[in-house]
Amino acid sequence: MHYEFFEGFMPRISEVTNRSLPLWEQTNYQIKRDRTALHSLGYVYSGEGVLEYAGTSRLLVPGELFQLWPGHPMRVVSSREKPLAFYSYLFRYRVANWEQGTLSSEESSGPLPLKLGSAGGRKQEVEAEFRKTYEFWSAKESGYDWHVKLQLLNTLRLLQSLETSRDTDSSGKQAVQRAIERMKADFAQPLTRSDLAEAAAVSPGYFSSLFKAHTGISPIPYLNKIRIDYAKQLLRDTSVPVKEIAEQCGFEDSFYFSRLFHLDTGMSPRDYRNSI
């Protein structure tokens, strides 16, 4: 899962729908759009149908997950004998980025970085998440927008776990985890990409692409994030001078440490210490 992407994910939900027989009876068993305008994340819980989208076609059956995004022609055709039924989130989203204490964001028209397919043996769990969201939306109780947003995040976490279980490259995940364990154990040491690749038992050239594919971030920035997080703890809980904290966290250059710290928090290490 692209954790860095979802860390800045800011959805604005427009509607949560339950498309079923009453809709198909009114639309002659099809929905057609010349150009989609919103993102959609859906789950089929019964019936059969066909989704035609952006020049591709796929069968929709119980347990199938799908997503759509703005700017493409779309048509959904339901079976008359087994009317299609699915829940879906309709939303827009921005991706936020904090840099030196300043927040910037950009609205996205592209898909979420998810590998969607069948829910497999976890159909009941996935359906329960979508159904619960639809019930929150329909009830219109106090704070329902907030609850629905939380449900979307919970759903994305669940879909990530499905993606992980479908991923056949278990050796790749294990290699990345070995590198992360080395980072956590030896972050105070001057680790290089080659050191981490050795821990992962893969070549340095392959390691960087493998690590980013599984974490969404390159290995050295990941290592530095671990170091900065430990530095925050030392600033909060001790009176150790900043230069010594930099050294204890694996930074030979305290100025470089301060620059990275400022990029992460928007303030200097000393200001951070005085703010908590």
Rank of each mutant, 00 (worst) to 15 (best):
M1Y: 04
S165H: 03
E48C: 02
P204L: 06
D34W: 10
L114K: 09
G117Y: 08
A179W: 04
P269D: 04
L21T: 14
L112F: 06
E48G: 03
E125G: 03
C249L: 06
D237Y: 14
L153Q: 15
Q160C: 01
L156E: 01
Q26M: 14
K225A: 15
S118V: 07
G216F: 06
H2V: 12
A85V: 13
H147I: 05
H214D: 00
R236M: 11
V242D: 07
D253R: 03
A197T: 10
D229L: 05
A175S: 09
W146M: 08
F6W: 13
K132I: 00
A213V: 03
Q30N: 07
E247Q: 14
W98G: 11
A197E: 12
S258I: 13
E7I: 08
L196F: 09
E48V: 01
L51T: 13
T215I: 00
L210F: 01
V176R: 02
L159Q: 05
G172Q: 04
R131V: 00
P22D: 05
G250T: 09
S171V: 12
S161F: 01
L235W: 04
H72P: 01
E181P: 00
W24T: 11
R236S: 13
I220R: 00
D34K: 15
K184P: 03
L234W: 07
R94L: 14
T56Q: 05
T168S: 10
F91Q: 03
S208Q: 11
A128Q: 15
K123Q: 14
G250K: 03
Q67W: 11
E244L: 13
E181F: 01
